[in-house]
Design a protein around this nucleic acid. Structure first.
Length: 1089
RNA sequence: GGGGCAGUAGCCUAAUCUGGUUCUUGGCAGUCGGCUUAUAUCCGACGUAUUGCGGGUUCAAAUCCCGUCUGCCCUACCA
């Protein structure tokens, strides 16, 4: 890596325009092949296996991709810095409907007929090409945000080798008996001749308000002496010829009511006689009006009743595939939980071919499936005088007429409701059972659930909740899509006898059909050409027309990315299996996370697959969606999309990454607020940049400093040993959090270390040591201490903020290579000092209280005070505060001359008060809690003191004596108000606020220093510039102060000389400072040299 | 329709699993003050919350239970 002068300053723009520094690093990393050589160096190291989920490159990357990539990058970099080889192979998801739709739009065509007319070969060629439209965007953005990925050798799901591996997997499923042909009920467009995905159904305008028939129909019960019928309701009369059953709710009450049969127009109601009909009790009033109930039964008691079909047409049955139909189950009443009584009659007509719920009822009860309307949306047989070929919507009227003539139509009306239409051609859709291939994943359900228990989910509730429940309700996986651009299913079927064969690779295909043409391609249409004679019947084996669900493609990546199990791919895949870690968005739970899990679980069961036991991935970190700053989902329509490029170029990738990783819980929806990034930049990165500036400025001046020769730790002052200890604790904490995938926790620990400890305490308190006087051991010590802290910060931050950490690292260890190639330091136990850290926490508390006291007393920090008094209720705290270190820190920070007194709290200054500890006492006294608490509240201070010293105290409550143990109460300290006291409950602090002339004078001198220094700065003087200072006081006390503290003033203002105003040279900066009631000081100074 | 997650000040957020008294934590933005020639931060003081709403369990509910409303996510789409 680029070699800088040791301790070189960061570029001026590092804080204001971080993008400049980052872009330079991106270029340097690329030019020097840092990632590649790091990977080469780790070649033989133990692996940490990471799998990259493939994005589709036919859309631009968004800010949520930056989020997921920041997570993945941070974890991978961390593991690399632990010495592991982390293979980071890029991948592209290239198949699927969204790609096809994009191309259709581009070509200005729509629907399958038009694609066929355009030519499938040309169409697929366009698809293949279109996938790479945004490849550059992805690669550039990834590089820019520091997401290291091997883009030179990505896996691409349309590659022949990838497809061949997928074929192998699909053939294994088939040969294991886990792939079968069935039907799937899906929304279908008769005109386009294709099923629509739910995604297409979600297109705007798909659902339209239409007026549909609403008919009540009577189904006559077979073998009823009383002439009963079942009253059913439907809005799709065209499905009635395909009726196979009626469904009732098992727990719902139904009534047998007397109804008047329909009459011809003009005839008197009831003249056609009456009949008995079943209807849900809850619907009887609404449907029948006034009626007479003959009998009442629960739904499940109706189950099994047989009825006469409405039409006698010979309606063809289709093979459902998923079950063997039982014809004796036909035309009976079955129960189904989904039946409601909010509308209709509570008796639902079942046409399995045209409804998903109906299909489910048929599957459970092994019903045959009748299908009177075919794929084109037209009747396939003559029904009741309606000729075959009639469009389904047009059959409604004619069929209703027929039923009316035969007296089976009880009621007819038109009802408005929303109905789906094809978003391309506006044709009303119908639900249709289309042929499909399934994987019998439900047979592996138990195994999948067991393996899922071994997955470390972050957060855990995704694994047990969303994902676990999805597995519990697992249904077979429909893997076929009636489209063009996808992995072709490697399943051939015989057009004569229905035999099936699966093909697990190119060689197998060649064996079957002889030589393949030179220009052969593993996609449609050329893949549909090879055929061969059926071994059983001599018919022709042809490939199933469909292509594969592209989710299978992505779930196959652990194997297919290496061309497993062919050739060298076998070993490569085994070396990268299982994954130690994957991470994607929550929306992948039922997508990639599931498909990986399902395919992996299946392969486990194959003895010859050679894969180790256990789940395919061991840890899965899930991130939530990224919303806009108001919590609204980002969408083009609302125009609230955050452009990742804009955010990154404005704030820098480090700040964007840090913001995304550190704010809120990873898995919850995240609001993306630019103000938050700005805060991260200012507080964290700004502070770090400034800390480096401070260190580098002085380290380059301090010629005596050599980081290779550290000052022995025990010879350094306590404040240094404290920061050294904090450095080590931070190393330990950040490592532990990163190991545990708690990226936000690691960020927090680093923010605290850099912002609070390193910068705002250590540097601030020790500034003078860095520049004052000769090169001494003490001066050497502070450089080493700060150097080591900054070095650790750079290393620890590297996985999270790869740029700034690199920039600092290259200046702290020139020639050592990239920070990302380093090993993370181990915490050094010999530098840890818990006592010192504890003492410092107490110091901080005391200082805070001291400042509060000063505030109230209106005593600015520049006014020295005589003494501070401390009482501590905890012996351990007292001991820590007695160290010279603690005293020195408190006094220095608060500008106080001495510790006036430091003693155990005797309750004399503040009164002790006991408060009930509800958590403990509640269990003991239960219902008496309220009175017990009141009694404790009223306890005298003397009793509280006894309790605090560990003695039990009996109390009387409602006639009962209760022995109060020390752990039953909390002792608090309350201020009495005699003089101003501050307490946090454990420490009591007050100030000696008496000021004498001496203190007042010093205060004035310090005030003057501050004002003069402000003037120096205003007039553009540098820190090291020396001045000639001339002063004249107007005010007695001021005059004395100037005289007495002349040396201090000279030292603090870098004044080489101090003289009277009268002797000020020409051209000196002059100013009159107002000290209120104390008077004024005339100042003149001039830069020397 | 089914399943899940969430609702705490003007805004964000902790505490919710495992109930406790912590007059609800921290931050942002606001006002006032302090420290500091590292100008990036930092420190102190000052509001505003019947913890979405309504019930219940309990000595005790932000927390557990029931209902309800709102938002989001996933999934399905109804005779």
């Amino acid at each position: 890596m680029a070699v800088h002068e040791r301790f070189a300053p960061l570029p001026e723009s590092a804080a204001a325009r971080p993008a400049e520094l980052e872009e330079a690093l991106v270029a340097a990393w690329r030019a020097e092949g840092v990632f590649e050589s790091l990977q080469a160096a780790r070649k033989d190291a133990p692996r940490f296996v990471f799998w990259e989920g493939p994005p589709t490159a036919n859309g631009k990357p968004g800010i949520h991709h930056v989020f997921a990539r920041a997570i993945k990058d941070a974890v991978c970099r961390h593991r690399t810095m632990l010495g592991r080889l982390v293979v980071r192979k890029a991948g592209w998801d290239t198949h699927g409907l969204p790609v096809e739709l994009g191309v259709e739009k581009e070509l200005g065509i729509s629907g399958k007929p038009q694609i066929e007319a355009y030519g499938v070969a040309r169409f697929n060629a366009r698809c293949k090409e279109s996938v790479w439209r945004y490849k550059q965007d992805w690669e550039k953005l990834s590089e820019r945000i520091g997401y290291w990925l091997d883009y030179a050798d990505p896996y691409v799901t349309y590659d022949d080798s990838y497809v061949e591996s997928v074929w192998h997997l699909l053939a294994r499923f088939h040969r294991a008996g886990l792939a079968y042909r069935g039907k799937k009920v899906l929304p279908y467009c008769g005109r386009c001749g294709t099923g629509l995905s739910s995604h297409e159904l979600g297109q705007p305008g798909a659902y339209k308000e239409v007026l549909d028939p609403s008919v009540h129909v009577r189904f006559k019960v077979v073998g009823s002496a009383r002439g009963e019928s079942l009253l059913a309701w439907t809005t799709t009369p065209w499905t009635l010829p395909s009726n196979i059953a009626l469904a009732v709710h098992p727990q719902e009450p139904y009534v047998l009511a007397k109804i008047y049969l329909p009459v011809q127009k003009g005839a008197e109601k009831g003249s056609a006689g009456t009949e008995l009909a079943w209807i849900a009790k809850a619907r009887a009033q609404a449907v029948l009006g006034a009626h007479e109930v003959v009998e009442e039964r629960l739904g499940r008691e109706l189950a099994g009743l047989s009825y006469q079909p409405l039409f006698d047409a010979e309606v063809p049955c289709v093979d459902p595939g998923a079950w063997k139909p039982d014809t004796s189950a036909l035309h009976k009443v079955w129960t189904a939980e989904y039946v409601t009584t909010t509308d209709g009659t509570g008796i639902v007509h079942q046409a399995a071919a045209y409804g998903v719920d109906d299909w489910e009822v048929a599957r459970r009860n092994r019903l045959p499936v009748k299908q009177a309307v075919g794929a084109e949306g037209r009747l396939v047989v003559d029904v009741a005088g309606v000729p075959a070929g009639t469009f389904f919507k047009d059959a409604d009227e004619a069929l209703s007429e027929d039923l009316k003539r035969r007296g089976l139509l009880f009621k007819k009306a038109k009802e408005p409701h929303s109905y789906p239409h094809c978003w391309r051609c506006d044709t009303p859709l119908f639900y249709y059972a289309a042929p499909a291939w399934y994987l019998r994943t439900s047979s592996m359900k138990q195994r999948m659930i067991e393996l899922n228990r071994e997955v470390r989910w972050i957060p855990p509730e995704i694994g047990s909740g969303r994902f676990g429940e999805w597995l519990e309700n697992n249904i077979d996986w429909n893997i076929s899509r009636d489209r063009y651009w996808g992995t072709p299913l490697p399943y051939w079927t015989c057009d004569g006898c229905d035999a099936e064969e699966s093909i697990g690779g190119k060689d197998e295909l060649v064996l079957k059909c002889g030589r393949l043409p030179d220009a052969f391609d593993f996609h449609k249409p050329s893949i549909d050409e090879p055929t061969w004679p059926c071994a059983k019947c001599g018919g022709t084996m042809r490939r199933t027309k469909s292509v594969l669900d592209c989710w299978f493609d992505s779930g196959a990546m652990p194997y297919a990315q290496w061309h497993w199990p062919f050739g060298a791919g076998r070993a490569k895949a085994e070396a990268q299996y299982p994954a130690d870690f994957i991470a994607e968005g929550l929306d992948q739970t039922r997508g990639w996370f599931y498909t990986l899990h399902a395919i992996g679980t299946f392969l486990q069961s194959l003895p010859d697959a050679g894969l180790p036991p256990g789940p395919p991935y061991k840890a899965c970190l899930v991130n939530g969606l990224v919303l806009d700053k108001d919590g609204v989902k980002m969408s083009k329509r609302l125009g609230n999309i955050v452009d990742p490029w804009q955010a990154v170029s404005e704030h820098g990738a480090d700040a964007v990454r840090w913001y995304l990783l550190s704010s809120g819980a990873t898995h919850l929806p995240k609001r993306f607020d630019p103000a938050g990034i700005l805060e991260v930049r200012r507080k964290h990165f700004g502070t770090l940049v400034n800390s480096w500036k401070f260190f580098s400025d002085y380290a380059r001046l301090g010629k005596g400093f050599d980081p290779a020769r550290p000052a022995p730790i025990h010879e350094r002052p306590e404040i240094d040993r404290w920061l050294a200890s904090r450095t080590q604790s931070t190393i330990a904490e950040v490592r532990a959090r990163m190991d545990d995938y708690d990226l936000a926790g690691a960020c927090r620990a680093l923010e605290q270390f850099v912002g609070d400890d390193l910068s705002n305490w250590y540097i601030r308190r020790n500034r003078a040591r860095f520049w004052k006087g000769e090169w001494t051991a003490d001066r050497d010590a502070c450089f080493h201490t700060l150097h080591d802290a900054l070095r650790a910060a750079a290393l620890l931050m590297a996985p999270l903020a790869p740029f700034l950490s690199e920039a600092i690292w290259l200046r702290i260890a020139p020639g050592a290579g990239s920070v990302h190639a380093q090993l993370l330091p181990e915490p050094r136990a010999e530098l840890l000092d818990h006592e010192l850290e504890g003492a410092m926490r107490l110091v901080v508390r005391l200082v805070e209280m001291g400042r509060a006291l000063r505030e109230r007393a209106k005593l600015g920090i520049r006014q020295p005070l005589r003494a501070i008094h401390v009482r501590a209720s905890d012996a351990r705290a007292l001991e820590l505060l007695r160290t010279g270190f603690a005293a020195e820190q408190v006094l220095g920070e608060l500008n106080i001359k001495a510790i006036g007194s430091l003693a155990a709290d005797d309750g004399a200054v503040c009164s002790l008060k006991a408060k009930a500890n509800f958590r403990v006492l509640g269990k003991k006294v239960g219902g008496l809690m309220k009175s017990v608490a009141a009694t404790i509240d009223a306890l005298p201070a003397e009793a509280a003191a006894r309790l605090r010293s560990g003695v039990a105290v009996p109390i009387e409550v409602e006639g009962r004596t209760i022995e109060l143990a020390p752990e039953d109460v909390e002792i608090r300290v309350e201020t009495s108000g005699a003089f101003d006291v501050e307490t946090d409950g454990r420490l009591v602090v007050w100030l000696d606020a008496d000021l004498d002339e001496e203190l007042l004078g010093e205060g004035l001198a310090r005030e003057l220093n501050s004002r003069v220094n402000a003037l120096r700065k205003e007039s553009g003087l540098g820190v090291e510039d020396r001045i000639a200072l001339h002063l004249e006081a107007d005010g007695a006390r001021l005059a004395v102060a100037l005289q007495r503290h002349a040396a201090l003033i000279q030292a603090e203002t870098m004044a080489a000389s101090l003289g009277a105003l009268a002797s000020a040279p020409a051209g000196a900066t002059r100013c009159r400072l107002d000290f209120g009631p104390e008077g004024r000081v005339e100042v003149a100074f001039k830069k020397l040299g």
